[in-house]
């Protein structure tokens, strides 16, 4: 990849050709305030806060301007602040600012931008407040849509379109009345939404908030237990319980994407009815047992019945590798082709 040399705030940096100024800055550890940018999505350039000064060009939107050899850029000036403060103040004037009640508290792009620009309560109070009592859509079992926290960056819409290709939501109406809407403004549960939650994880604020997850204390890499795709997951663990699931961005299989089951279907892990030990039927009743006892029993029965009377059924909840081994075992060790699998969860 061809490298471009440029200067940001007096520092010489290099960036791959094709990167934007914003991406180049972020990659080099330089923060430029932004709201509508997301690394997985095409730039929209709608929040207008990622302005920088490009020498010889004046103020420029950094999320859409590609790097060029020799550009000299500054990310801070009185002029820039004068332009970019107002939009952020206006967003706050139309935003439910009860941050404590918000799932994104302390992990919110809007909070970050506001603190970067030094916004204070007083300076926001001079603005006329908008309506922040719009109805919340709670129809989806996994997440809520709260328009009073929405900043209309369009990241959810672009995610649904560019990444998922579902197009359950789009902008409706226009101007100040614009909303993020399903067809006919129906509840999201009645739309073609598949609840994958890709939009929820990308929402820079708390407009889309998960209902069933909690803040984890540590994370553990694993593989999704649902189907044969084998998506990489990062299980959010609190104490000894899984409280959230996120896609593993480093995993070559799914690059961080998940489906509704992988992301939200983790309840079974901690479910009290989950079978945690092998059960053996004794006297017509299942009784808890040990793995050694159970496996001995199975081995004994295999020998007893022989290959003609045995079939193996394996589970999609096992990894591909496990399934490979079980079919090898069935054919090579047991000597039968009677094996099936339920990759249809």
């Amino acid at each position: 990849m061809e490298k471009i040399k440029l200067t940001i705030d007096g520092m010489a940096i290099t960036a791959d050709r094709g990167k934007t100024i914003l991406e180049a800055a972020l990659d080099n550890g330089i923060y430029i305030p932004h709201l509508c940018h997301h690394q997985d999505l095409a730039p929209a350039a709608v929040c207008r806060v990622c302005l920088v000064e490009v020498e010889g060009r004046g103020h420029t939107i950094s999320c859409r301007t590609p790097v060029e050899e020799g550009l000299t850029i500054s990310t801070e000036s009185d002029h820039l602040n004068k332009i970019r403060r107002i939009p952020v103040e206006l967003i706050f004037a139309n935003h439910d600012t009860d941050c404590i009640a918000c799932t994104r508290n302390n992990n919110c792009q809007l909070q970050r931008v506001a603190s970067y620009l030094g916004l204070e309560r007083d300076s926001m109070d001079r603005m006329r407040m908008g309506n922040i009592e719009k109805p919340i859509d709670t129809s989806n079992p996994f997440f809520d849509r709260n328009p009073n926290r929405c900043i209309y960056c369009g990241i959810c819409i672009r995610t649904c379109d560019e990444i998922q290709n579902i197009n359950a939501i789009d902008f409706a109406s226009r101007g100040y009345k614009m909303t993020v809407s399903t067809f006919g403004d129906n509840p999201i549960a009645d739309s073609r939404c598949e609840s994958c939650g890709e939009c929820v994880v990308r929402c820079p604020v708390g407009a889309l908030s998960p209902k069933t997850t909690m803040e984890p204390s540590r994370s553990v890499k694993s593989v999704c237990t649902y189907c044969g795709v084998g998506c990489g997951v990062e299980l959010g663990v609190r104490g000894n319980s899984v409280v959230s699931v996120e896609g593993d961005r480093d995993n070559a299989v799914n690059h961080g994407s998940l489906c509704v089951k992988g992301r939200y279907g983790f309840e079974f892990i901690n479910h009290r009815e989950r079978i945690r030990k092998p059960l053996i039927k004794k006297n017509g009743k299942f009784e808890e047992s040990t793995w050694d006892e159970a496996l001995d029993l199975v081995a004994k029965k295999f020998r007893e019945y022989g290959k003609e009377k045995v079939a193996v059924f394996s589970s999609a909840k096992c990894s591909n590798e496990d399934n490979y081994v079980i079919q090898k075992f069935t054919r090579a060790v047991l000597g039968t082709n009677s094996i099936d699998h339920c990759a249809r969860l």
Binding site: P87, L90, R128, R174, Y176
Partner: peptide, 22 residues
């Protein structure tokens, strides 16, 4: 202009509305 603003970018969507309110 506030009624005709498309709503795409923040300054126009919220700025024209705020100016109108004032």
């Amino acid at each position: 202009t506030q009624k005709e603003s498309c709503g795409k970018c923040v300054p126009c969507r919220l700025g024209t509305k705020q100016m109108l309110d004032i």
